[in-house]
Amino acid sequence: MSTYASHVVHGPEHGSVRDDVTVTPDAPVRAGARAAATRRQTAFRRVVYLVSILLMAVPLVSLVEYSVRFPLTGAVNLDAWRKIFAGRTNEYTTLDNLWLGLTNSLIMCLITVVIMLVLLLPTMVWVRLSGKKFSRFVEFVCLLPLTIPAVVLVVGLTPIYRVISTQILNSSAIWLSFAYVILVLPFSYRAMDAGLRAIDLKTLVEAARSFGASWLTVLLKVIVPNIKGALVSASFLSCAVVLGEFTLARLLAKDNLQTALFVINLSDSQVAAAMSFLALALTTILLVVMDLIMNRAPKAPKKLDASKTYRAPKKRIKDTTR
C-alpha cells in the first residue's frame, strides 16, 4: 500500500505544512521553538507508528501462535503447517478444497480488477467530462452496493447465476467475479474519483484531443499515467474485498478462499489459522509486486542528460521568466 500512502503523505503540500511550524518572530527563539516542535512531531510520529504496528501485529502474531500451539496442552508443534504442505489434514479431510479456493480467489481478483478498470475508468472519465448531470447518478449507483447487504444481493443474483451456470458459461466459481465487480464498485469508485479530481482532466483531455489523439490514446497515454496511484489503490481495495468475500460464495455454493477456510476450520482449526496467515502473506507479496510493477520510477529516456543537450537560447527570446 505504499503508493497510496505516499500519495497522501508526501504530496506537494508537504513542504508548506512544515513551514507553518514557526510562529515566533524572534529568530533565536524561533529556531529553538522549531527544534522543539520538530522533536514533538518526531515523538508523536513514533507513537503513532508504534500503536499502528501493534494494532496490526497483535492479531497476526496471535494467528501464528494459534497455528503452532496445541490449544489443550500449550505445546508448540508445527503439525498444522506440515499438513498444509503435505496436502492432507487427516485421513478424512484433504486440503484440495483449500488450494482450489485460494486459486479461485486469486483468479477472481484478477478478473474483478480487470472488469472493474475497463468498466469504471472510461465511465468515470466520461461522467467527469460531461458535467454534473450524470455524476450524481453514477455516484449513487456505485455507492449503492454498500447499502445492500450481501444476503439481499444473493436473492437477486441466484436466478442470474442459474442462467450463467446452465446456459451461458458453467458452474465454475470464477464467474462470481461478475458479482464481485458490483461489490468493489463503492471502494474503487472512491479511489478513482480522488485520482481524477487531482488532475485537470478536462484541459488534458482537450489538449490531447485537439492535437489529434483518439479516445483510446487519451485514456491510455494521458489519463492512466496521471492517475496510476488511484488505479493501483482501486485495484488493491478490490483485491482485498474479493479475497475476504464469504457471504456471496457461501450462499451461491461456490468455493473461494474464505468458504474453504470455513470448512477446514470445522475439522482442523489450526490448519485454517495457518492457511489464513499464508493467504495473507501471499496477498501481501502479490500487492507489493503489483505496486512495484505499476509504479516503477519513470525511466529517464536516453539522451535526456541536460548537460549534453543544452544549448544557449537564441538571443531574440530571452529567458527571464524564471
Binding site: 484541459t203 488534458l204 489538449a207 485537439s210 492535437f211 483518439s214 499515467p225 496521471n226 535526456l304
Partner: peptide, 24 residues
C-alpha cells in the same frame, strides 16, 4: 471530431502532460 481537424491549441494553463518531460 476534434482529433481530425488538424489544429493545435494552447490553453490558459496546465495543458502539458504532467507525467511527461518537455521533450516527451
Amino acid at each position: 471530431p476534434a482529433y481530425k481537424r488538424d489544429m493545435a491549441m494552447v490553453f490558459q494553463a496546465y495543458s502539458l502532460m504532467p507525467h511527461m518531460t518537455v521533450r516527451q
